[in-house]
């Protein structure tokens, strides 16, 4: 039986990504697209930077050929606690939830795109077109996730549909959420288990433990955005 404070205290969701383990395979990118009904814009519009990827793999080449090393970094919405995207929205379509998520309300969004312009991580995506899925992708649409329409902004939700399911399960068992209750699509698909997700307010959780690691860093920390995504530096850089 969990006590009352545990019940009322909202979990604080966070992610940790071990860069030592990431091989840049992009399984997370594919899993995210399928899980979250991300529309396909085609190669031409993609070249105009109109494609939408809630998570992407950034590549960094180091050294001169033939002694080249590639470093990978999965970049998704950092769910900043001081999110630059939030105060610039004129219609409150983006706001901060009690669980520390940066949320986007599609039905409020009027498409000013201020938020995307103010995001230092470029992880907000605008729907330039009516959503389309070339066959047979339309058969894989997830009924638990909204279909966004033309003219609205969209972004990573930390798989809110899976968070709700995990919280529901914990409530059924009358306990606080714990590691393994919520596994976002990207985390679940990672073949090298480079990604971790959990409640950072719970000091015993895996993310909280990794956040205390001496390899822990946050992306563009100096901006003061206080991201909820923690990267673990490669060991040779530590």
């Amino acid at each position: 039986m969990m006590n009352e404070t545990e019940k009322t205290q909202k979990p604080q969701w966070a992610m940790a990504i071990d860069l030592d383990r990431c091989t840049g395979c992009e399984a997370c990118v594919v899993a995210c697209r399928i899980e979250n009904n991300i529309a396909v814009v085609g190669p031409e519009e993609s070249a105009r930077d109109r494609s939408m990827n809630w998570i992407r793999i950034e590549r960094y080449m180091e050294g001169e050929f033939p002694d080249v090393r590639v470093r990978f970094r999965p970049v998704l919405c950092q769910h900043c606690q001081e999110a630059p995207c939030e105060p610039v929205c004129p219609v409150y379509a983006t706001y901060h939830t009690e669980e520390g998520l940066n949320a986007q309300v599609y039905n409020r969004c009027v498409g000013t795109r201020y938020c995307a312009n103010n995001c230092p991580y470029s992880v907000r995506f605008f729907n330039f077109f009516d959503p389309q899925w070339p066959a047979p992708l339309e058969k894989s649409l997830n009924p638990e996730v909204s279909i966004r329409t033309r003219g609205v902004m969209e972004k990573c939700t930390f798989c809110i549909q899976r968070i709700r399911k995990g919280e529901e399960k914990a409530r059924d068992e009358d306990r606080a959420v714990r590691d393994g209750d919520v596994i976002p699509a990207c985390v679940g698909s990672c073949p090298t288990k480079a990604m971790y997700f959990g409640n950072i307010a719970d000091s015993n959780s895996e993310v909280a433990r990794l956040a205390r690691s001496n390899r822990a860093e946050r992306l563009m920390e100096d901006l003061g955005t206080e991201p909820r995504v923690i990267y673990l530096r490669k060991r040779d850089q530590a």
């Binding site: 939830t97 669980e99 949320a103 599609y106 996730v145 939700t157 549909q161």
Partner: peptide, 10 residues
């Protein structure tokens, strides 16, 4: 009950 947008909308 929660009146967070994310309680019902996603």
């Amino acid at each position: 009950a929660s009146i967070d947008c994310y309680a019902c909308h996603r």
